[in-house]
């Protein structure tokens, strides 16, 4: 009698498991380590906030990230509300420069985070 499990079966099953693992890795849980910088509401770049200190300027807004947080250092806007937002490190925290249409937000949402914040 032939064996119940052939070599071909093993290959197929392994391939399915690998594919599932690959899809899982592609969709990682957001842990508050990455921040997204948006221009005009569209994603401009996603950065790791735990890496080396890096400064980047987008639409007149200079943004510093690395070492565990991200913040808007300076902006060409007049009101500087974005600079006053300070350092961001927790999931969902954000800083917005409305005059320059730039925003920075820490990715991810903790389980009990509200849908939105009024204020």
């Amino acid at each position: 009698m032939r064996r119940l499990v052939t070599r071909a079966d093993v290959i197929i099953i392994t391939a399915v498991i690998l594919l599932a693992a690959f899809l899982w890795v592609l969709n990682p849980k957001e842990t508050g380590e990455t921040a997204v910088i948006r221009v005009d509401g569209k994603e401009y770049i996603t950065v790791n906030i735990n890496g080396e200190l890096t400064e980047t300027t987008v639409n007149g807004v200079s943004i510093v990230y690395g070492g565990g947080d991200i913040y808007i250092k300076d902006s060409t806007c007049r009101d500087k509300i974005c600079v006053k937002a300070g350092r961001l490190s927790k999931q969902g925290q954000s800083a917005v420069c409305a005059p320059n249409r730039v925003s920075v937000e820490i990715k991810g949402k903790s389980k009990n985070a509200p849908w939105a914040v009024t204020g």
């Binding site: 937002a85 925290q93 509200p114 914040v117 009024t118």
Partner: peptide
Amino acid sequence: FTVGVRDPFKNAG
């Protein structure tokens, strides 16, 4: 829906 009310004494968000 749970909506947060901004803390006036802390940072945005």
